[in-house]
Write a protein that binds this DNA or RNA. Sequence first.
RNA 1: GCCCCCUUGGCGGAAUUGGCAGACGCACGGGACUUAAAAUCCCGAGACUUAACAGUCGUCCCGGUUCGAGUCCGGGAGGGGGCACCA
Length: 862
Amino acid sequence: MARYNAKTTEAKWQAAWAAAKTFEAVEDRQKEKYYVLEMFPYPSGRIHMGHVRNYAMGDVVARYKRAQGFNVLHPMGWDAFGLPAENAALEKQVHPAKWTYENIANMREQLQSMGLSLDWSREFATCDVEYYRHQQKLFLDFLKHDLAYRRESWVNWDPVEHTVLANEQVIDGCGWRSGAPVERRQLSQWFFRITAFQDELLEALDDLERWPEKVRLMQANWIGRSEGARLRFAVQQATGQQAAEIAVFTTRPDTIFGASFLALSPDHPLTSELADKNPDVAAFVAECQRQGTSEEVIEKAEKLGLDTGLRAQHPFLPDVELPIYVANFVLIEYGTGAIFGCPAHDQRDLDFARKYDLSVLPVVVPDGSDSIGFSVGNEAYVGPGRLANSEFLDGLSIDDAKSEIAGRAEAGGFGSREIMYRLRDWGVSRQRYWGCPIPVVHCDSCGVVPVEEADLPITLPEDVTFEQAGNPLDRHETWGAVACPACGKPAQRETDTFDTFVDSSWYFARFCSPRAETPLDASAVDYWMPVDQYIGGVEHAILHLLYARFFTRAMEKCGHVRVSEPFAGLFTQGMVCHETYRGEDGIWLEPTEVERTDSGDIRRLDNHSTVTVGRSEKMSKSRKNVIDPEDIIERYGADTARWFMLSDSPPERDLEWTDGGIEGAWRFTGRIWRIIEESITSLPTAGSPAPLQLSDNAVALRRLTHQAMGAVTDGIERFQFNVSVARLYELANALAAFKANGGDDTTGERWAQREAIETLVLMIGPMMPHLAEEAWQALGLDGLLADAPWPKADPALLVEASITIAVQLNGKMRATLDIEPDQSEDTVREAALALEKVKSAIGDKAVRRVIVVPNRIVNIVA
RNA sequence: GCCCCCUUGGCGGAAUUGGCAGACGCACGGGACUUAAAAUCCCGAGACUUAACAGUCGUCCCGGUUCGAGUCCGGGAGGGGGCACCA
């Protein structure tokens, strides 16, 4: 046997799997299906370590489930629309389609070098007309079912480039390219009615048992259901004009007697009305609109307000009028776009009140304080307590007071109980070229008219230019001109394209029947859906996953699928991190630009100057702490890269890339090969029957083998691949150390050794598939390892003859006790008390109590 | 600012979910093999005290529950992720 050559061996088995169509999924109703899916990549051009980790994990699951006998679907595709292609078009003068498809070709080759058990026959890209034509059909169905509509909404507007900016393109309130201060602007946009399913989306979270608790919690918070009250305040009209009203939503109606002001959003209709008449208000609104649209920006900004001069009547106190402010922190998108401020019990309101010198009256007093002695300083009191300073509410609990206010408001006709959601409808319009065109037409006579289904697909024009800013579709001379589908008169195509989150909201379903003439083939979807295990980054915990859940329900409503939840199991993996390096000039250095000297410090490779080593951070181009997977696969092979990705770090946590770690993984591949090489000539032939008698030595190895089967399987089932890896190391260590005693027992020992080696090879299969396949062949076993069943532990071999249990005295470890398992409590207690070490530790103290935990521990209380 | 998560030796981490803390790997030290190196193999190792036997401390910090806490509860510190047009 020759030294293991990863490069040639990996290519050989990749070709063998492809030739045998091993991983092409075929619907087979006789077999139980298992759908494994990793979040498909954006085709940036090169895979990065995050992809390697993600796909290595998915492949473990896919290959393991295959070995368990499941009919596995494990597809791959490309999330191919999006901004980077347009940026590339601008910077490199290359058409987005060309750039994207070239990137896909490159990345496909890189992924294939990883030896993943993917069904490449199902591959597609979301920018394929054959994909997005069906997305357009789905949109038309959504329109029919009132799940899509058009309305005005706010965007970040770059006044120089005349374009809408993504939040990430807004840096410190300015456009990233123009540097001009960004404005908030209203634009007519398409929305998906995700709020139609808000209750369902919230409640169904409880049933997603194989989702991480944190993701479910984040989604629940995102939907943000809160019970409260809507209260209407009459606006005092000094001039005797027609009375106006301001509706306010609050989750704390109980604090109404502590109210000291009302605040309107700068975008509130009443604010706009005031701004028309009052230049101060107009100026303030304009100032607020210079902020971006992101919640983060608005929340972090200094709280500013402007007194409108208007006063609102307190609904329960005839003598009290509240000033009405316009405030920059009131969001028009949430609630009614207006609030009442109770400074004593809300931190934001308190900050605002201190700034504008408004009264702070505590109306909830913690138990144990009295209403006179309790005051609020610079920290609002948001805890529990009883009502005070609140007329008829005094002495009530918060809950009772909320209910009392809501009841009185309802009776008085100026308010009602209300449930509010933080969730807003999903804006899907993008003023960009490289996305799926929205299939509608704007007609002067008929308004917005959907394109006829027979006229689909609406394809993107190819002859576009990117020199000018803004949407090339708007500038295109002929593409937009079209006859109105309703009246036939000249009309304009919609030039907005879909948010790329739309593309990724149904690709998982399309994989079931990727070449179907309809968006989805019912029979295929019924068989394969839902995805049994979905794997991807936690950064998608809210938006992508929530949109996909909505989209599946929407497709269900339109009759395309019969499931409402797309992902039965979800796993969110951690990031891949690496140390960062900076030269003396403070410029980031790549790992390839530095070296570790013999004394252990890091120097520049070229001029040996000092390098500052920074902490480990997520690999990113900007910090240059990137390791290229292609280099690693070229040097060590895919198996080594995959093994390292699965070792050490628990999958949900961040993984730290180290040279030592990859070297260790590489040594292990060599070690496995050596173990086989050194023993192969002395092993019995494949399939030899078990000898009747086995020596203790052989039985001990068998026990270890079967314990490893149990532990490795358990690790994979629980997504603790690092633990499975550790158990595989142990089995390999035991095998490397195993020596046959010789003599009469040799046959049995060699048999046990073969069993252990075959087990090891089978179990590294999902992690290092090429090495395992090569070893399988070397061991003289038939067929492909990829088709071999997973080993199953013999329960009889898992039982130990003797176990060691700890003996504690007053909770401190004092001795250990070797004893047969499952002894009676009395036996264990007596044996523990009889130990010399225990007797001397107890001394002359009286034993008051002995706690015996079967097969675990004895604790003597003295 | 709001929401969520994480914190265990020099490092990554394990601990059957409340029962022997530190499995396994990395880095390190010692040894074997070698003319030498590499590769490989064997041994060692949480910290402190001790010649040794052994003992004390120890899972970010403070407090609590318990016979027993890395694990549960309350408070705090540090680090990270998300915040609706990046994907």
